[in-house]
Simulated scan of single mutants.
Amino acid sequence: MKIALLCSGLGHVARGHEVFARGLFDLLRGEVDITLFKGGGEPAEREVVVANLPRRAACLERIHFTGSPHWAEAIREQERCRIEALTFAYAALRPLLEGGYDILHCLEREVCEVLYAHRHLFARVPRIVFSNGGAIPARSLPPCDHVQEHSAWNLRQSARGKAFLIPHGVDPQRFHPGVPAGDFRTRHGIPADAPVAISVGTLCYWHKRTDHVIREVAALPGWHLIAAGQENEDSPAIKALAERLMPGRAHFVTLAHEDLPQAYAAADVFVLGSLFETFGIAYIEALAMGLPVFCTRHPNQQAIVQEGVFLDMKQPGALTAALRDTPAARLDELRARGPQIVQRDYDLRVLRAQYLQHYRRIAATPAQLPAWTLRRRIAANLRNLLGRAGRVFGV
């Protein structure tokens, strides 16, 4: 059984999506014949760097769009990601065709679409698995053979007969309450006795809503905020907002994933301003570290976090009130329960067996190309007739 795991963003950015790809590869590389196809970085054993047009390429800096200026950055970011994934997918075709893989596990929908459309090129037709990192409902899923969902809420909306559930996981040996904060507070000018909230995610308006978190924490005298994440075009304005509302109390850091535990250890609580997450790896990292989680009251997040402080993130002042008024005894309960939840449901060592079980099942499933049926014949004839009519009438 040979598996190809494909992630175009890996090597370019370090969001939860890419953390998942790296973590899954490292989890399984000693257990199964798996190769990681990534968009950037250096080649390594069983790691193939695929040439592509990365989302941060200078030639993509001036994308034209039609729409509300409020969504300008979100639209441009989506288009940059789409181009990166498409160029990655076509460039990956040759090594995939030469590799003889049984399973192609795709993390981007564009990659999944391209490979599924070209599966007839493979000497042995692979099974194509899509990891649904965007909570795409069944009607909008890309064509694929199997779908990995990451939560029970997402599974209920997915494609029946194709979908299976394996949540994101975390390594409790790296993320746990005993991790020392070291000199993190000192290096960033955070007083030893100051209450600190940490938010982990891209510094932006349109998804993680970093500006909302800043406004809510700024209203609490003496509180500090650690905002750890990738920067983008929104980031300068967000930093300026923090400097205006809470000067000296907001600390922006971009960290390698292996350095995140120390940042979590320097905080007292975890907050995320987004209104919905497909999963949110940062939630379970915070749980594993023993941090109380303050997040949106969405059924998906409630099912994933299980025990946290859930609130209406759209409501101004709700996060401020929750941070200020949640009883200390309740916070202590959450600090104790988080690591227990992770050990039971999200420990990578537990999830490893689930991945191997599903991969073996999928690899044993016969792969079939579309059959030439009467329905397909009629559809092809109709397309040909419409094409001829268009040429004749100049349509």
Rank of each mutant, 00 (worst) to 15 (best):
G100L: 06
S235R: 04
L291G: 07
L86D: 11
V217G: 06
E258A: 14
F294D: 08
I128F: 00
A14V: 07
Q230Y: 03
S140E: 15
F175Q: 01
I103A: 00
L60S: 08
Y101K: 03
L5C: 12
V50D: 07
L287H: 06
R76Q: 14
L241H: 03
P236F: 13
L97I: 03
A135W: 06
Q340L: 15
F130I: 05
E285A: 11
G67S: 10
E84Y: 06
I362P: 02
I198Q: 02
A123K: 12
A228I: 03
R94T: 13
I341S: 08
L275C: 01
H224C: 14
A389D: 08
F276C: 03
D325S: 06
A14G: 05
F252K: 03
Q262T: 13
E307D: 15
D183H: 07
Q173C: 11
C204G: 13
L203C: 12
V395R: 13
L53K: 03
G39W: 11
P180S: 11
S235N: 07
I128D: 01
S151M: 02
T365I: 03
G100A: 07
F175P: 03
R391V: 01
P327V: 08
L386E: 14
T254P: 00
A371K: 01
L245Y: 02
V129S: 03
W153L: 06
L260P: 02
V196F: 09
A14E: 14
K2A: 09
I190C: 11
L10M: 10
T87I: 10
T326V: 14
F279W: 11
A163W: 05
A197K: 09
D268C: 03
D259C: 08
A267G: 02
R80T: 03
E18H: 05
R361H: 13
P316R: 07
L331G: 11
G290F: 05
E18L: 07
I304F: 10
Y90P: 00
L331I: 09
M246L: 14
A219T: 07
I3D: 00
A363M: 02
R297I: 00
I136M: 09
R109H: 12
A267W: 02
R109V: 06
D347E: 04
G99I: 05
L86T: 08
A380Y: 00
P292Y: 07
G39V: 09
H146S: 09
G229H: 10
Q157G: 12
Q340W: 10
G11A: 12
Y101A: 06
A353V: 13
Y101N: 05
A256G: 10
R76C: 14
R127K: 13
F184K: 00
E149H: 01
A117N: 02
R330L: 14
E258W: 02
L155S: 09
L121F: 04
L260Y: 04
E243T: 04
A138K: 01
I362Y: 01
E277Q: 06
H64C: 04
E42T: 09
G308Y: 10
L369R: 08
A250S: 13
V19Q: 12
Y90D: 05
A57S: 15
A14W: 08
L10F: 12
